[in-house]
Amino acid sequence: MATPVRDETRHVTDDNISTQVQSKVKFQKLSIDTSIENKQRKQTQIDLKTYEIFLNKSTTEKNKITNEAKEDDDISNLDQLIEVDEKIEKTNNIILGLQKRLESIEFDKDVKKLHERNDSTGIYYLFDTLTSKNRKYYPKDWIFKHKMNNIGDIPVFLNSFQQFIQKYEFDNIFDQQIQNIDPRENEILCKIIKEGFDESPDIVNINTVDISRIIRDLKKKIHKPFWQRYKIKGLGKGVGGYNL
C-alpha cells in the first residue's frame, strides 16, 4: 500500500484558517467583555432607580403614618412605623451597595483609559504589560523614527517596529500566542506605528484600533512576486525574527 503523502498546501491553508479563527475569537471575546460590562452597568442603573423609587414611597408612607399618629395622639400604628423604618434602612443599604457597584464598574472602565500625567521628566502615560505594572510611556522620548511611504517599505518598517517594542519592553505583539494586552498599551502602540505611515490610506486601514490587526494587515500587503525581489536583496523570510 502506498504511503499517504502529506498535503503541504492544505496544511498551510489550515494554519492560516487557524490564525484567522484565533483572531476572530479574540475580537469576539473583547466584544463580549464590553457587552457584559455595558449590561452590568445598565442593569445596576435600573436596579438603583427602582430602589430609589421604592425608598421615596416608603419615606412618604412613614411621613403619613407619623402625621396621622400626631394628629390622633395614637400609638397603635407604632408597629407599622417600625416596619416601615426597617424597610427604609434595608433599602438605603441596598442603594449604597448599588452605588458602590456602579462606581466600581465605572472605575474599572476608566482605569483602562489613557490618562495624561506629568512629572519632572514631562508628560507620560501609565500602562501595564503582561509581565509588569504601571509602566511609563513618555511620548517625547519613545520616538519611532522610521517611515513607510509605500508597500516596498513594509519589511524594513516592521523589522524596525519590532526592534522598537523590544527596546522599550512592550509586549511582543508579533508573537501570535499573545492574544490580550492592556487596552492602554494597545492604544499607545497603535498611535506610535501610525505615526510612521504616510498619508496614503491604501497601505493599511488607518482607522483600525487593534495593533495585532495592523501588523497582520501590513503583512498581507506583501504579495509573493513582490516579496521575491526583497529576498534577493537579503530582506526575505525571517526579517525581524518572524515570517511574513
Rank of each mutant, 00 (worst) to 15 (best):
I151K: 06
D153N: 02
Y168P: 07
I215V: 11
E83A: 10
D7E: 08
R229P: 04
L48S: 11
P225A: 04
N186L: 13
P201C: 02
V239C: 10
L30Q: 11
L98V: 08
D217A: 07
P4C: 04
Q80R: 13
G152R: 04
K109H: 12
K136R: 03
A69V: 09
R184V: 07
I143Y: 03
G236T: 02
F164S: 01
R216P: 15
R6P: 09
Q20I: 14
W227L: 12
D14H: 07
F157K: 00
K167S: 13
S18Y: 03
N77I: 00
L130E: 01
K133R: 05
D171H: 08
I88H: 09
K147G: 01
R101Y: 10
N63I: 01
E83Y: 12
G234M: 02
N16S: 10
E61N: 04
I173F: 12
W142Y: 06
I32C: 05
K220R: 06
G241A: 09
D7I: 06
F226T: 09
R229L: 15
Q43F: 12
Y230M: 05
K167E: 13
E199S: 15
G196L: 15
T50A: 12
N16P: 09
E52Y: 02
T59H: 08
E103H: 08
T131A: 06
R41A: 09
G122R: 00
L126E: 10
F127A: 02
V111R: 13
L126A: 14
D72E: 09
I206F: 11
T50P: 07
N118Q: 10
D15T: 13
Q43N: 12
E116V: 03
K57H: 06
G238L: 00
V25L: 06
I75C: 02
I17S: 06
R101T: 14
I95F: 02
Q20T: 10
T121Y: 00
C190W: 04
E61P: 08
T3L: 05
V239P: 02
K191I: 08
F144G: 00
L114S: 01
Y138F: 01
F157L: 07
E8Q: 11
E187N: 13
K224A: 08
D198I: 15
P183R: 11
K24S: 11
L218H: 09
T129V: 02
D7K: 08
D119G: 06
E8K: 13
R101Q: 14
K194R: 08
I36A: 00
D153S: 03
T131K: 02
Y230C: 01
T19I: 01
S120M: 04
Q228Y: 13
Y125I: 02
I65K: 15
K167H: 11
S200R: 11
K64S: 01
D202G: 12
R216W: 14
N243T: 07
